[in-house]
């Protein structure tokens, strides 16, 4: 997939950083910002309630290129968006004397559910057309209003709970109190519920122990992960949407990621778009869906590194046998 622009755009990079932030006018500790992960975490134990976050932005745009190109009325804007809350605020930035663009986009607590994406666009008049987007940041930031640590969430939730305890809001797990774990794939992020009431599971999955215990731990983790990936894949496939014109749309959030990561293992000979179309048609037309299951299983086991974990366990077993003799 390649894109063409109908007018001149910037070749140089647009980069930016959030240098600092304030919550209702008070400085946010710098430890709540991660320059490496490009995340701002706004939830502080000390300040449960706040109304407005103000972000201190520093943007670098290719100044030299701009000066020589066919662009006029150049404006640099910061864009804060969040899909679920229909958040979209666009803040004009100001050019400072040293050529960087600075500004303070604000985020109202009431306007954002979990995390907003912060990007920067450069807008200019090109060939007499005003308001053209001529460049934008590629490495964007996340502003997380719920997080206590500035990290990009890249892991599933793992919820350790005693299924037998009938504890709000997990009463429904009571029905599964003899299961060691359960995978739930609806919602913002899939969750693996680990049943702490299942004797020994916490200790087994914990840290330390003999090499044999570690090998078994790897095996169990791979087993749980395989189930999780399989469940996530099915959930993602069922979320593929058919647009008005009959074309297919990639699902959003983690489902998009799961499909893009696993489809090359499920249907290796197809481009991502073709694989999406193939998997969708097999599912709704019920033909060829069953034949696909082994491939889904395979893709999930690759994600869960079953081969490596099983191999380690077998080797460990061999070694302990030798010790017995």
């Amino acid at each position: 997939m390649k894109t063409l622009m109908p007018y001149a755009t910037l070749a140089g990079e647009v980069t930016f950083k959030v240098a600092a932030a304030k919550l209702d006018g008070r400085d946010l500790p710098l430890s709540m910002l991660s320059q490496q992960e490009r995340v701002v975490a706004l939830h502080q134990v000390e300040r449960q309630k706040w109304d407005e976050a103000r972000l201190d932005l520093r943007v670098r745009i290719p100044e030299a290129e701009l000066a020589e190109g066919p662009w006029s009325d150049v404006v640099c804007v910061a864009v804060l968006t969040e899909g679920v809350s229909n958040l979209r605020t666009v803040t004009r930035l100001n050019r400072s004397a040293d050529g960087t663009w600075v500004g303070s986009p604000t985020l109202a607590r009431d306007a954002c559910r979990t995390r907003a994406e912060l990007s920067v666009s450069v807008v200019a008049t090109v060939d007499g057309v005003p308001g053209r987007i001529i460049g934008g940041s590629e490495e964007n930031w996340l502003v997380d209003v719920l997080a206590r640590k500035p990290v990009r969430q890249r892991e599933l939730h793992i919820n350790e709970v005693d299924f037998g305890e009938n504890q709000k809001p997990y009463e429904w797990l009571h029905a599964f109190k003899d299961a060691p774990w359960l995978v739930e794939t609806s919602g913002d992020m899939p969750t693996v519920h680990l049943n702490t009431g299942f004797e020994g599971i916490t200790e087994l999955l914990g840290s330390g122990g003999s090499t044999m215990e570690k090998a078994v731990r790897g095996l169990i983790a791979a087993q749980i992960a395989t189930e999780a990936w399989t469940a996530m894949f099915h959930s993602a496939v069922s979320d593929i949407e058919v647009a008005e014109d009959g074309s297919l749309e990639w699902p959003s959030g983690w489902r998009d990621w799961v499909l893009r990561a696993m489809l090359p293992d499920v249907l290796p000979d197809l481009s991502p778009a073709d694989a999406l179309s193939e998997i969708h048609s097999r599912r709704v037309e019920t033909s060829g869906w069953n034949e696909l299951q082994p491939r889904i299983q395979y893709a999930a086991s690759r994600r869960a590194r079953v081969a490596k974990n099983l191999g380690t366990a077998i080797r460990e077993l061999d070694r302990s046998d030798e010790g017995d003799q």
């Binding site: 666009v90 308001g131 987007i133």
Partner: peptide, 21 residues
């Protein structure tokens, strides 16, 4: 909208959060 920034063409301060509250 893939090439135009509507917010720059027609700026809007946005709703008054306090009034909404």
């Amino acid at each position: 909208a893939s090439t135009l920034m509507y917010e720059v063409l027609a700026s809007d301060e946005g709703p008054d959060a306090e009034a909404f509250r």
